[in-house]
């Protein structure tokens, strides 16, 4: 491809690159700082730990990114996760011989159905995503409570093979990390190299244009919420297996962490924008913060505020970068 882009114009890639580089730069500076304060930070075992703990967040973030690209938002994923985790763990406690793969499938299936319902409400009944997911969040949490009768499923009720889903490893790499990597590879390909994947961007960038050019906007919308649900269902199984306990308030409020990771990763809430590569750095930054703060003896009570401040700063800085690019890239045109 010939490099023809005129020098004073900054292309689509450049905007993303600047944001990603500044984010990666920040991650590196943060890591060096933490390493300086605690030399255990950049050890294999801690990095393994960090990635394992970030895996579930990162899986959810992929789904959330697609939802946000279509101008939506999903507040129900914490509840979906809890529902799927509860159902699978109860199944496992009743049938201890169940193959872990079947447990995973059950979880994904429950998530898919939950997501499909939300997708239906948003796409077919034109309910705003924030309302539909807010309502369904309540419903899913309530159902989780009902089927569990308010009781927990604890470690001793779960089979070893089930707990091994998250503790086991292949070639020395933890299963959770492996699953996350597979998910990222699959969705990287899906988003960038399939027609359906590109339609997600089209729908988010301009729903009217998409409709007029024959893209089935409803179907795409329904699809992203279903995928989100499926991923949340998968995460539910992983979560319950990892923490060896299922409660009806599992992952309550976790959707906010996921949305925050997306936003830090450069996914625009206004829709149409967001890349898998950016998302990875967003998720990583979030994971590093969670992992590193306790390591440098920051009181756990400070973590919330620091996270909030980091999100705010990340969002404001990325807005400012965009503004700078926007003004240097001004073109003569009356809007």
């Amino acid at each position: 491809m010939s490099e023809k882009s005129s020098k004073n114009k900054i292309s689509l890639e450049r905007i993303q690159q600047i944001r990603e580089f500044s984010l990666i730069g920040f991650i590196i500076v943060l890591s060096i700082f933490v390493q300086f304060r605690n030399s255990n930070f950049l050890t294999m075992s801690n990095i393994d730990d960090l990635l394992t703990n970030t895996a579930i967040l990162s899986i959810l973030a992929v789904g959330m990114m697609m939802v946000i690209i279509t101008r939506g938002i999903d507040l129900s994923i914490g509840a979906t996760l809890a529902l799927s985790g509860m159902v699978t763990s109860m199944t496992v406690s009743n049938y201890p011989s169940l193959h872990p793969l079947v447990a995973l499938l059950i979880g994904i299936f429950i998530g898919l159905i939950s997501g499909a319902i939300i997708g239906l409400l948003v796409a077919k009944f034109n309910i705003l995503p924030i309302i539909a997911t807010l309502g369904m969040m309540n419903v899913f949490r309530g159902i989780t409570f009902l089927i569990s009768g308010g009781k927990w499923v604890s470690a001793y009720q779960m089979s070893d093979s089930f707990k091994a889903i998250s503790t086991g490893s292949i070639l020395g790499i933890n299963n959770l990390i492996l699953i996350a990597i597979i998910i990222y590879l699959v969705f990287y390909y899906f988003i960038n190299y399939t027609r359906t994947g590109r339609k997600i961007y089209a729908v988010g960038s301009s729903p009217e244009s998409a409709k007029i050019s024959g893209i089935n906007v409803d179907r795409i919308t329904w699809l992203v919420y279903s995928i989100m649900g499926g991923l949340a269902g998968l995460s539910g199984v992983l979560w319950v297996s990892k923490f060896a306990s299922a409660q009806s308030n599992t992952a309550s409020g976790y959707e906010m962490n996921v949305i925050a990771a997306c936003v830090i990763g450069g996914v625009s809430i206004a829709g149409g924008e967001g890349k898998v590569t950016g998302l990875i750095s967003g998720v990583l930054l979030y994971g590093i913060l969670e992992n590193a703060l306790p390591m440098i003896n920051v009181s756990p009570f400070w973590q919330n505020a620091i996270q909030g401040a980091v999100i705010l700063i990340a969002v404001l800085v990325s807005a400012l970068i965009k503004r700078r690019i926007g003004s240097s890239n001004k073109i003569r045109r009356e809007d």
């Binding site: 689509l12 390909y189 960038n192 190299y193 399939t194 027609r195 590109r198 339609k199 961007y201 089209a202 988010g204 960038s205 301009s206 009217e208 244009s209 998409a210 007029i212 050019s213 024959g214 893209i215 149409g272 924008e273």
Partner: peptide, 27 residues
């Protein structure tokens, strides 16, 4: 204009009828 402001010119031209590999459906 019925364009997609966030996407590249190429994508705007080919949206919905992207050139794909016949076998793998890869764009």
């Amino acid at each position: 204009a019925t364009s997609y402001p966030h996407l590249s010119v190429t994508e705007n031209i080919f949206m919905g009828h992207e050139k794909i590999d016949i076998k793998t459906k890869r764009i």
